[in-house]
Simulated assay, not measured.
Amino acid sequence: MVYEEITRNFRALHDKHEVVVGVQDLPLGSPFSAVLNGEVDAAIAEMPVHESELIVGFRFPAQDQLLAVGLDHPSAHRTVIDVEELAEVDLLHRIGDAPAYWKTARTPATTPSGAPITSSAGFTSLEQGLTLAATGDCAGLVCRPVAERSLRGDLH
């Protein structure tokens, strides 16, 4: 629903002001570099954003976080997983030049009680992350819309 609203707004900008929109995939672990380097004028990136050079415009509504795992993973058929149980999985992390605070928000180093969370494998694209999760060796945090739109049969 949100992307449709953004598309309508850009169409209106095009019709009224002749704004041209190009679409470019950015590495998931480098959400700010293309904007900061002048390669693109705007980007859709996950919060938080603390860079003073960047302006946060539209904010997507908060989403539930789900754990993507392979069908044979011990957590595959669970409907609820407590955040403390992340210490029991190898949680995927994003590879890129994003600031440490941003990477930690995506893949925490510890649970809220301080238990360490292992993260031995990384990914640069959503499909790569989902494929790694499907192996059953790792797990990945994804937002509910990603999970609901995924057409993969090898993930739960």
Rank of each mutant, 00 (worst) to 15 (best):
C143I: 15
L28I: 15
A42L: 14
G57Q: 07
A134G: 06
V19S: 02
T107Y: 04
T131Q: 08
L67N: 03
A76Q: 11
P27G: 13
A76D: 09
R11P: 00
N37P: 00
H77M: 08
I81G: 03
A87G: 05
A100S: 09
S113H: 06
A68N: 04
V20M: 08
S52H: 09
S75G: 01
D15S: 15
P74L: 08
L126K: 01
S125M: 04
A105Q: 01
I95A: 01
K16T: 14
A43R: 10
I117S: 11
E46T: 12
V20N: 07
P48C: 11
R149Q: 15
S75I: 00
V83N: 03
T131L: 03
I81E: 02
I95H: 03
H93V: 00
A115H: 14
L141P: 03
T104E: 12
D72T: 15
Q128W: 03
S120E: 13
V35M: 05
L132E: 04
E148T: 01
A109S: 10
D25Q: 12
N37A: 13
G96C: 06
A121S: 08
A139C: 05
L91M: 02
F123C: 06
E84K: 02
A98D: 14
V69P: 04
L66W: 13
G29L: 07
A147F: 10
P27C: 02
A68D: 06
G129D: 00
R144Y: 04
G29R: 08
A105H: 06
Q63Y: 09
